[in-house]
């Protein structure tokens, strides 16, 4: 427990995991022993970093970096194979009139549409992510969740976005949440696992920090804020707390974990604020699509409009981009 605060004590994730996951009491002891989050301080820090002014060439770089970090997402009951193909085409060539625009990091769909997406992005370098584990509520048995994950992986998903069991987490049954993540990680095989904490339902920043550590200890490759189905979603302070968690986790265990804010990121300004937060909290080692993603759909059009404004010197409009 006390070793947590000794930054740089890279004793390895497996030792730490074996120690703390031996029982629910040990896990609880570890998570509740994490330093508390100063809520007022976190809010103020995030708000202060949000006022940074990023202009001209720096803004251009930030826009291109943000585009390359987007997980272009469609998670609607009304999704059709055609809609997924259209979104994949946009993921590969976000602005068809301008080949300089980088491709996005990944597309994110429901498991039954993974095969369609895999086919549509083949050879482009765009990854296919799939939500699984009874998304978005996570209310089902472990067997169903594992099967759901296996379905997505079998269909060719490179990444799996799982949801944690918030009910169990809030009830204090941390071991159940832990074991579920371990089981899903096993079902993922070589696919990357992103663990959705659904911070909007966790009530406090302390819980966000605990859930982040829990997910990382259990083997998550990424921690993700939200499903996008609950408000508030990816707020700046919550992302700040999670970035601190991955920074500390790297220092403690030597394993690097990525962060994905998702939901509520709509404008270029929102996206750039996130990038500033990453640089100032976790460091520029995370400023890469392998370690930071933006889960969103509408933000891409705004990024493209701002990029075009920089190229042409005139404001663009939504008429000139695909609707999604």
């Amino acid at each position: 427990m006390d070793s947590f605060v000794r930054v740089g004590d890279a004793r390895g994730v497996s030792t730490l995991t074996t120690d703390v996951a031996s029982s629910n009491a040990a896990l609880r002891g570890f998570l509740h022993g994490l330093p508390g989050v100063d809520k007022v301080g976190a809010d103020a820090r995030a708000a202060m970093l949000g006022t940074r002014s990023i202009k001209t060439t720096a803004k251009r770089q930030a826009i291109d970096l943000a585009i390359s970090m987007v997980d272009l997402t469609t998670l609607e009951g009304a999704d059709t194979p055609g809609k997924v193909r259209a979104m994949c085409a946009k993921a590969v060539h976000p602005d068809p009139s301008n080949p300089d625009v980088p491709r996005v990091a990944a597309v994110c769909v429901y498991p039954d549409l993974v095969a369609e997406a895999v086919q549509a992005v083949r050879g482009s370098g765009v990854k296919v992510a799939s939500v699984a584990t009874a998304f978005p509520s996570g209310r089902s048995s472990l067997e169903v969740k594992v099967t759901d994950t296996a379905l997505a992986v079998a269909a060719g998903a490179d990444e799996v976005d799982m949801v944690i069991d918030r009910g169990a987490f809030l009830a204090g049954d941390y071991l159940k949440v832990f074991e579920e993540i371990v089981a899903i990680k096993a079902a993922c095989g070589s696919a990357h696992l992103k663990v959705i904490l659904e911070t909007g339902e966790l009530a406090t920043y302390d819980n966000v920090r605990r859930a982040s550590w829990l997910a990382m200890l259990a083997g998550g490759d990424f921690i993700k804020t939200s499903t996008g189905k609950v408000q508030p979603a990816a707020t700046l302070p919550v992302t700040l707390v999670m970035l601190e968690a991955v920074r500390d986790f790297l220092a403690t265990t030597g394993r690097k974990v990525g962060v994905k804010p998702a939901g509520g990121i709509r404008t270029t300004k929102d996206a750039i604020k996130m990038l500033v937060l990453v640089n100032e909290t976790a460091g520029d080692g995370w400023l890469h699509p392998d370690w930071f993603r933006l889960g969103a759909s509408s933000v891409l059009n705004d990024l493209l409009m701002q990029r075009q404004k920089q190229d042409t010197g005139r404001y663009s409009g939504p008429d000139y981009f695909t609707l999604d």
């Binding site: 010197g313 005139r314 404001y315 663009s316 409009g317 939504p318 008429d319 000139y320």
Partner: peptide, 9 residues
Amino acid sequence: PWLAGHMDV
């Protein structure tokens, strides 16, 4: 001029 050049006007 900004409004005149705006593509959404």
